[in-house]
């Protein structure tokens, strides 16, 4: 285990940011801390980096107790949402900063910075100031700066949060590829479940200062430990008193099978490739079902049509908190 977080607690005044959190973060993986804003995930990341001190508990990095270590001695790379660029230094000198602090020979610094510039595709921009870069370029510079010192772990705090949607997607792909290339243990904070599901090897869901669930993206999406995780990771709807993903519902117009829920289509909306069908069921629920565009004509659905619904086997969460949170499952 690369990072051990043991019973860490942190308060800001009366506000409990972290409530006895324990997580193990495996070496070489890309781990996401996922949760709503204000849930404590950034605080946890900052505690790992030493930018914040825990009130209680311990932090171990690669087997070394880092709880009381200042940020300077932890050898972590930290990337901030708003880039934290050194505005008066060129891209090259931004990236070289950590190496200059470590008093590496000039030639070595130069070589290493050139490598990193190529890695983050900023070679043509080496002599520009951060103000002359786009947001995405600044964030790549910040990443290169953090990687320059060969950190034990790389920590990213909402790294794509300040970027617009398109750049965000590009950088997300790029981070995944970068990680496949340099297998540095990476932890990144995000409130965007899509980002976490797409990029991470493992996801830690944090809410209100507590760990809700730890697992692979598939685990979390398909087998959420509780209602919160289920709702946070993707769309949900209700069917026969159960929470179900809208795409995990079979809809058909044939004669109903035992266990099917009957209803009437009240609305059909098309969003791009996806069709949303709202069905008012006999029990008074409105259930949303999503289909692909191709499936619609085959089924012959239209508003007012009687339909039968049934959840896909294994999908759905019968009652909230019916499973214990899978602590340290990874």
């Amino acid at each position: 285990m690369s990072i051990e977080i043991i019973d860490v607690g942190k308060r800001f005044g009366d506000f409990v940011a972290l409530d006895n959190v324990s997580v193990s973060i495996p070496t070489g993986q890309l781990t996401a801390l996922l949760g709503p804003s204000g849930g404590g995930k950034s605080t946890l990341l900052r505690i790992i980096a030493g930018l914040e001190t825990a009130d209680t508990g311990r932090i171990e990095i690669e087997g070394v107790d880092a709880t009381r270590l200042p940020p300077q001695k932890r050898n972590v790379g930290f990337v901030f949402q708003h880039y934290a660029a050194f505005k008066h230094l060129t891209v090259r000198r931004n990236i070289a900063f950590g190496l200059e602090i470590r008093r590496r020979p000039k030639a070595e610094i130069r070589e290493r910075v050139d490598e990193l510039l190529a890695l983050v595709h900023l070679t043509p921009f080496a002599d520009r100031l951060p103000a002359q870069l786009s947001g995405g370029q600044r964030q790549r510079m910040a990443l290169a700066r953090a990687l320059a010192v060969a950190p034990t772990v790389l920590l990213l705090d909402e790294p794509f949060g300040a970027l617009d949607a398109k750049v965000r997607k590009e950088l997300r792909d790029w981070l995944r590829r970068l990680h496949d290339e340099v297998h540095v243990t990476t932890v990144f904070v995000t409130h965007d479940q899509e980002e976490a599901l797409e990029v991470a090897d493992e996801i830690v869901v944090i809410n209100e200062g507590r760990v809700e669930q730890i697992g692979s993206p598939d685990d979390l999406y398909d087998r959420p430990a509780n209602e919160f995780v289920m709702r946070f990771l993707g769309p949900v709807t209700q069917l026969g008193g159960q929470l179900v993903r809208p795409h995990d519902i079979r809809i058909h117009t044939d004669s109903p099978q035992p266990g099917d829920v009957l209803g009437r289509v009240t609305r059909i909306t098309r969003v791009g490739f996806e069709i949303r069908v709202e069905v008012a069921t006999g029990t008074g629920e409105v259930t949303t079902v999503t289909l692909t565009r191709d499936a619609l004509p085959t089924l012959g659905l239209e508003v007012g049509r009687e339909v039968a619904l049934r959840p896909v086997a294994g999908a759905g969460l019968t009652s909230p908190a019916d499973r214990p949170a899978l602590r340290a499952a990874g």
Partner: peptide, 20 residues
């Protein structure tokens, strides 16, 4: 890339940094 992104109408993500 491990998982496919979940389909379309994802729950709106909470606003970044609003309620820090």
């Amino acid at each position: 890339v491990a998982t496919a992104a979940p389909a379309g109408f994802a729950e709106p993500a909470p606003p970044a940094r609003a309620a820090r």
